[in-house]
């Protein structure tokens, strides 16, 4: 892919950052308003995919993107699982369970810093979904039509 026309490039350059930040906002405020990890991650991935579509990529870039996105995807999953398992492990003496709230009395309800371990899970899911969407796009886009009769 060698990129699109200058008009698309200029607009994409302006908009992609805003889309990325908006996705991060959706992820971070997931426990207060509609949205959350999945929706925000999808928006983040949309910003990344937009810039890739507009500017085009070389094969080497595609390869490095697919490697790094798979690492991000795995680490997002591990982070999510870690939040869950810490709930089981930290509260010893049989009081803990899977997905137990890590900070039960932390922060003030209705503000950004609240809701215990839900924001952590949201961030983990956001990382995972964003990376997964990007890697799906990369895999589908980089499949060249190599078939020859």
């Amino acid at each position: 892919m060698s990129g699109m026309t200058p008009i698309v490039k200029v607009i994409a350059r302006t908009v992609a950052g805003f889309i990325f930040v908006y996705g991060c906002y959706i992820i971070l405020y997931g426990h207060l308003s509609p949205g959350g990890g999945f929706a925000g991650g999808a928006i983040v991935a949309a910003g990344l995919i937009l810039s890739r579509l507009a500017f085009g990529t070389s094969a080497a870039q595609e390869r490095s993107t697919s490697i790094s996105s798979s690492i991000f995807e795995s680490s997002g999953g591990i982070l999510f699982l870690l939040v869950a398992v810490l709930g089981l492990v930290i509260f010893a003496q049989g009081a803990g369970f899977f997905f137990k709230n890590l900070f039960p009395e932390f922060g003030k309800g209705g503000t950004l810093v609240s809701a215990g371990s839900i924001p952590l899970s949201n961030i983990a899911i956001g990382i995972k979904v964003g990376a997964a969407m990007l890697s799906i796009f990369v895999v589908l886009a980089s499949t060249k039509y190599i078939f020859k009769e």
Binding site: I136, L140, T143, K144, Y145, I146, F147, E149
Partner: peptide, 13 residues
């Protein structure tokens, strides 16, 4: 499903 379809297209045309 789409990636499977693409893979099949690459092999069989």
């Amino acid at each position: 499903m789409l990636s499977l379809a693409l893979r099949i297209y690459n092999r069989i045309g």
